[in-house]
Design a protein around this nucleic acid. Structure first.
Lengths: 134, 134
DNA sequence: CAAGTTAATAATAACCATTACTGTTAAAGT
DNA sequence: ACTTTAACAGTAATGGTTATTATTAACTTG
C-alpha cells in the first residue's frame, strides 16, 4: 500500500543548506534566496521556502519566527533569542532550561516538545546610540 | 506646533474592549469581530484590527502571536503560554521571572522590556486522545 | 551507459492575515 | 443646533508564504 518516495539530493538543497550553515546572522527566506542565487542564478524563491521547511523538519536547521516572519538559524542546540526593537537584529541567548517551569507545565498533563524564550528590547549598540542622542 | 488630537469614546471601541475582557480563550481579530458583531452588526473588521492595536499599545489588553497570527489576551499581567500543536488551544502558564536568565541578558548590555516564553506540545486532552488511539 | 521514471524544480498564480485608503458618520466642543 | 474632525464602514492593496503546473534532472533499471 505504502509507496515509498525516494528522496533526491539536488544541488539546490545542498546550496541552501550550506548558505544557512554559513550564516552567522538569522536570515529570512528572501535573504537566503539572495545569497544562494550567487551559486545558482536560476534558483526559485518557492524552492527556497520548500527546502527550508524540509531542512527544519529534518532537524538540520531551526526556524525562528520574529514579527510574523520566518528566520532561519544554523544552530539546532538549545538556546534562545533576543530581538532588538530598534535594528531588528536577532541575537543568541544561552540560558539553561528552567526545571521549575517545566515541572509546573508537566503537572498540568501537558506534553512539551519545544520551549521558546524571546527577549525584546534594545541591543547594546542601539541602547548606546539612543542614549547619546538625548 | 503640536496639534493635540482628542480621542473619542466610541461604541465600537467599548464593545471590542468588552469582548476581549469577557474572553476566557485567546481569540483572533476575526473571532473578536464575530463576537462584537452581535452587539454592532455594521462593525467593520478593519475597525477591530485598529482598535485592538490601540488597546494593546495602551496596555489594556495583550497581543500574543501564535503561528504568525495575532491573538488577544484579556490578561496583561506577567504570564506565559502553552500552545497545543493538535487543537491549537492556547493555555496560560504561570511562571516566575527567571532572574538568572535576565541577569545574563543584561550583562550583554541589552535593555530588555519584554519577555515571552512559549511552550509547544500536546495539551492534556489531546495527549489522552492520541494515547488511547494507539 | 542509454532509456525510463518521477522527485524536485522554476515560474507563476493564489492565499490570507493584516494594513492602507477613502468617502461618510457621529462624537464632542462651541 | 452647528461645526469640526476623529473614527468609522467598506473596500482595495500589501506582503510573506503556499499551491499549482509544466519542465528538468536525479536516480533506477535493463
Amino acid at each position: 500500500m505504502e509507496v515509498k518516495k525516494r528522496k533526491r539530493n539536488t544541488r539546490q538543497k545542498a546550496v541552501i543548506f550550506q548558505v544557512v550553515k554559513d550564516s552567522h546572522d538569522h536570515p529570512t527566506a528572501e535573504e537566503i534566496y539572495e545569497r544562494a542565487k550567487k551559486e545558482i542564478p536560476t534558483l526559485s524563491l518557492g524552492t527556497v521556502y520548500r527546502v527550508l521547511k524540509e531542512l527544519a523538519s529534518e532537524g538540520k536547521i531551526r526556524e525562528i519566527i520574529v514579527n510574523k516572519q520566518s528566520h532561519f538559524d544554523r544552530r539546532t542546540d538549545f538556546h534562545h533569542h533576543f530581538i532588538c526593537r530598534e535594528c531588528g537584529k536577532i541575537e543568541d541567548i544561552e540560558t539553561p532550561l528552567c526545571r521549575y517551569t517545566c515541572r509546573k507545565v508537566e503537572q498540568k498533563g501537558y506534553i512539551v516538545d519545544e520551549i521558546e524564550y524571546k527577549f525584546y528590547g534594545l541591543c547594546s549598540k542601539c541602547a548606546e546610540k539612543l542614549d547619546t542622542n538625548k
